Amino acid sequence: MMKLFVFASLVAIAFCAPREKRQLSVSTIAVTGAGGSQGCVVTGNVLYANGIKLRDLTAAEQTELTTYQTEVEQYKNQLREILNQRRENLKSRLMSRGQPQQQQQQQNNQVDNEENLPKAPEKPSFCTAEETTQYYFDGCMVQNNKVYVGGQFARDLSSDEQSQLKTFDTEQTAYQKAVQAQMQTQVRGLFGGSDFLSALFGEDSGVNQQQAVATTPASTGTSTLPPKPTVPQFCTAIY
């Protein structure tokens, strides 16, 4: 019961730890999604990122977009054909029950060969992480080195501020990875290095538990986290 309580506490910390990163740096890079204005959207020849107008596409980028549209349509058609074929194969397999084993094996092999799905087309080069990543700070949002307040464009970041943002992103990413790694180490140490579900319900034998503890002597120790990154002061919220 004590392990269950401690584990629940660790899980709560694990969910809370990276939350700041998600608030400060929310990436929406998808080109093909469920719809809406998130990610990259092109209407006419105008490029938008997360609902914010970026620029007009160049002639080369328009050609790239046309190629991408063709590849996406081909990809959808291939998926549609595979789905229909699998539906027919499923019907055949259901109807083939009771048939000779060799015939059933041939049908199973046919289904197995269809597991290799077509590869989705690569997104266009003009839809980059640099242009679509959003950083949410206290009072404003930064995207593509531009500051927005209340959804309205406010100003461009200076060259010095752009360097600060890159440094912050690098340090925050490293900090988040370190927190997650520490949490994994603590969970492994708590349950003797074994699978936590098995340890929780007492399914590991005493020998296995001793071996796990012996192989992870330092897992219960506390590793040093890198310093928490300093959040850039691109805007000031007045309370």
Score class of each variant (00 low, 15 high):
4 L>M: 12
4 L>Q: 13
5 F>C: 11
5 F>D: 11
6 V>Q: 09
11 V>K: 07
11 V>W: 04
13 I>W: 09
14 A>C: 12
15 F>C: 11
17 A>T: 08
17 A>P: 08
22 R>W: 08
22 R>G: 05
23 Q>R: 15
25 S>L: 03
25 S>R: 07
27 S>V: 13
33 G>W: 03
35 G>Q: 00
35 G>L: 01
37 S>F: 15
39 G>I: 01
45 N>Q: 05
46 V>P: 03
46 V>K: 11
47 L>K: 07
52 I>C: 08
52 I>M: 06
58 T>G: 07
58 T>L: 07
61 E>M: 07
61 E>T: 05
65 L>P: 02
67 T>D: 12
69 Q>G: 07
73 E>H: 07
73 E>A: 13
74 Q>D: 10
76 K>A: 07
76 K>E: 07
77 N>L: 12
81 E>V: 13
82 I>Q: 03
83 L>Y: 09
83 L>K: 15
84 N>Y: 08
85 Q>L: 14
86 R>Q: 14
87 R>I: 11
91 K>F: 09
92 S>Q: 09
92 S>W: 06
92 S>H: 08
97 R>M: 15
98 G>Y: 02
101 Q>A: 14
103 Q>D: 09
106 Q>S: 10
107 Q>F: 03
108 N>S: 11
108 N>M: 12
108 N>Y: 12
109 N>M: 11
111 V>Q: 12
112 D>T: 10
116 N>C: 07
116 N>T: 15
118 P>R: 01
118 P>G: 04
118 P>E: 02
119 K>T: 14
122 E>Y: 01
125 S>E: 08
127 C>K: 04
128 T>E: 04
132 T>Y: 01
135 Y>T: 09
137 F>G: 01
138 D>Q: 05
140 C>V: 02
144 N>H: 06
146 K>S: 12
148 Y>F: 04
149 V>T: 03
150 G>L: 04
151 G>L: 00
153 F>D: 00
155 R>P: 01
157 L>A: 00
158 S>Y: 01
159 S>R: 12
162 Q>T: 11
162 Q>L: 05
164 Q>F: 02
167 T>W: 02
171 E>A: 04
174 A>W: 06
174 A>Y: 05
176 Q>Y: 06
178 A>H: 04
178 A>C: 03
179 V>Q: 15
179 V>I: 14
180 Q>E: 11
181 A>D: 15
183 M>Q: 15
183 M>P: 07
186 Q>T: 12
187 V>F: 00
189 G>R: 01
192 G>P: 00
193 G>D: 02
195 D>N: 12
196 F>V: 08
196 F>A: 10
196 F>P: 09
197 L>N: 15
200 L>D: 01
202 G>A: 00
203 E>W: 15
204 D>V: 14
206 G>E: 11
206 G>P: 10
206 G>S: 13
206 G>F: 12
209 Q>H: 13
211 Q>Y: 13
211 Q>L: 14
212 A>Q: 05
212 A>H: 03
213 V>A: 14
213 V>H: 09
220 T>I: 05
220 T>M: 05
222 T>G: 10
223 S>F: 06
225 L>S: 11
227 P>K: 12
227 P>H: 08
228 K>F: 15
229 P>T: 04
230 T>I: 14
230 T>M: 13
231 V>E: 03
232 P>E: 04
234 F>Q: 00
235 C>I: 06
237 A>Y: 07
239 Y>I: 10
239 Y>G: 11
